[in-house]
Simulated scan of single mutants.
Amino acid sequence: MTLTDSHSGRRLTARGAKTRARIVASAAELMYVKGVAATTVDDVLAATGSSKSQFYHHFKSREALVRAVVDHVGQTVLARERESLGNVSTLRGLRRWRDALVQSNALRHGAYGCALGALASEVSDHDDLARKALSQLFAEWRGLLADVLRRLQADGVLKSEVSVDQLATGLMGALQGGYMLAQAERDVSPMATSIDMALAHIESLSAT
């Protein structure tokens, strides 16, 4: 069985795909905790037990690895958000979504922030391809929030004249800003407050 690397177009055996996936997953964990700039290729090799020849078989450069990490983290986050938001159709459901994110971040006392946001802050100004990929991933995330708000609007919960796309952008901004404040303070309270204020604004636009 052969697979195709979505970045290089190179055909991979099942074993090769497994090796590549292991390298990307380990690199993602290291970059989340240590930061992108502080994570070296040698760090990744040590964590995975891979050789340099294996690494460069799958990645032309460290930058190629970072782009693969962006894809990996993005798809992981989006899979979580699709599951969390896919069936939300009430304001109470949005509150439960908020609670789950805050409680998950509280387990780390706010440390490290949003995995996708952390990548955006480090690579967007240095790698335009990675920046464009991150922009698309955030657009998909906002789209999931907008879909929830459209369902609320269709059910008559939100006023018909409100812009769900603008509300979704504001909610995403509150979420990401909350992650950053929680990271700086090692306390999720600012994150909870930021999202609560965004949700309170949405609730103020209720049609009832």
Rank of each mutant, 00 (worst) to 15 (best):
T90A: 08
R92L: 10
G93S: 11
R96D: 14
R96P: 07
W97Q: 09
W97C: 11
W97P: 06
W97H: 15
R98D: 13
R98W: 13
R98L: 13
R98M: 12
R98I: 10
D99R: 12
D99P: 02
L101G: 00
V102P: 00
V102C: 02
Q103C: 01
Q103H: 06
Q103I: 06
Q103Y: 00
S104N: 13
S104Y: 09
N105D: 11
N105V: 10
N105M: 14
R108K: 13
R108E: 12
R108D: 13
R108C: 05
A111R: 15
Y112G: 00
G113Q: 05
G113L: 06
C114T: 09
C114P: 08
C114N: 10
A115K: 10
L116D: 11
G117Q: 01
G117V: 01
A118Q: 05
A118C: 00
A120M: 09
A120R: 10
A120L: 06
S121M: 12
V123M: 12
S124V: 09
S124A: 15
D125N: 13
H126M: 03
D127S: 10
D128W: 04
D128F: 03
L129F: 08
A130C: 02
A133Y: 01
L134P: 06
L134N: 03
L134M: 07
L134W: 04
S135N: 14
L137Q: 12
F138L: 04
F138C: 03
A139T: 14
E140Y: 07
W141F: 11
G143I: 09
G143W: 09
G143S: 07
G143V: 09
L144S: 00
L144I: 00
V148F: 02
V148A: 04
V148H: 04
V148P: 03
L149M: 07
L149V: 03
L149C: 04
R150L: 15
R151P: 05
L152R: 00
L152K: 01
L152I: 02
Q153D: 03
A154C: 07
A154H: 12
A154N: 13
D155E: 09
D155A: 14
G156V: 10
L158A: 12
L158W: 11
L158D: 15
L158V: 13
L158G: 14
K159C: 11
S160V: 14
S160K: 13
E161R: 03
V162W: 07
V162Y: 05
S163W: 08
V164C: 07
V164R: 01
D165Y: 05
D165A: 12
Q166F: 08
Q166R: 05
Q166I: 14
L167A: 09
A168N: 01
A168G: 03
A168Q: 01
A168I: 02
A168Y: 01
A168P: 01
T169K: 08
T169V: 11
G170S: 03
L171W: 04
L171T: 04
M172R: 04
M172E: 11
G173C: 03
A174E: 09
Q176W: 02
Q176N: 09
G177E: 01
G177R: 00
G178F: 01
M180T: 10
M180G: 08
A182T: 10
A182I: 14
E185H: 14
S189V: 13
P190R: 06
M191F: 08
A192R: 13
A192G: 05
A192C: 07
A192Q: 14
A192M: 04
